[in-house]
């Protein structure tokens, strides 16, 4: 299968609330695919389905050629959750080493490497509970990167990250994509979205529109991405 992520009519409901509805998505190898959409539109739920943390109610999804959920995928996927999900009573280095080790990477050197990448080398020995919000986000990202996954699923990775580091993060994402890593990333920041190869716009669990920045702008008849976002989001009232 050519696509790294492929879903057919994927659905997930929580009680009567349909968080993902019959969603078809295809993400190509080495692509940075951005998920946009208002709060509650189903981005996180879609990611959890793809990682295998939630069971679909309908439809199916393949990730790296395997039908999810599949245990063997975990070590090949790096998932950065929307919430921090770290142990506050362990140091930054210990958190990264722990998740790395569980994913089969226990080299001290690799931990140093990702610490450097997120510019945390000096704070490596600090307890995560004592770090600032943005610094914790960096640790969280490092935990998703440490085992060199072939697919990165990043849920709003740059929330709370200062602009300087955000630029560095995106440069790194691009570098990884060039090395063949596929990245699915959600974001509410438009200038970030513009750095993606393709974007998907979600609303009420559906993939409403898909394409490059230019294509989405054209489709919405908007002059910039923010305007396009608002048009798509407002469409829900009209529809």
């Amino acid at each position: 299968m050519a696509a790294v992520i492929e879903t057919h009519r994927l659905s997930k409901a929580f009680g009567s609330l349909e968080a993902v509805r019959g969603l078809d998505l295809a993400v190509r190898p080495g692509e940075i695919y951005g998920l946009l959409g208002p709060n509650g539109s189903g981005k996180t739920t879609l990611m959890r389905l793809l990682v295998g943390l939630a069971k679909p109610d309908g439809g199916e999804a393949w990730v790296l050629g395997r039908r999810v959920p599949d245990r063997r995928l975990f070590a090949e996927v790096g998932y950065m959750t929307q919430a921090e999900a770290l142990y506050p009573d362990l140091t930054a280095g210990e958190n990264i080493a722990f998740f790395g080790a569980l994913n089969g990477v226990s080299s001290r050197q690799r931990v140093e490497e990702v610490l450097q990448l997120v510019e945390l080398t000096e704070r490596a020995a600090d307890l995560v509970g004592t770090l600032s919000g943005g610094l914790r986000r960096r640790v969280s990202l490092a935990c998703a990167l440490v085992h060199r996954p072939r697919l990165l699923i990043l849920d709003e990775p740059t929330v709370g990250i200062d602009p300087q580091l955000r630029v560095a993060f995106w440069a790194h994402f691009r570098r990884l994509a060039q090395e063949g890593v596929t990245i699915l990333v959600s974001s509410h920041v438009m200038d970030e979205a513009e750095r993606c190869d393709r974007l998907g716009f979600m609303r009420e669990g559906r993939l409403l529109a898909e394409g490059t920045t230019e294509e989405l702008k054209r489709q919405a008849g908007a002059t910039d991405l923010e305007q396009a976002f608002l048009r798509f989001a407002e469409g829900s009232d009209a529809a």
Binding site: V51, Y79, Y87, P88, L102
Partner: peptide, 14 residues
């Protein structure tokens, strides 16, 4: 509550 269970379950640990 920390969300680390979610992250733990996203690793190969059974």
């Amino acid at each position: 509550a920390q969300g680390t269970m979610e992250r733990l379950l996203a690793t190969p640990i059974s």
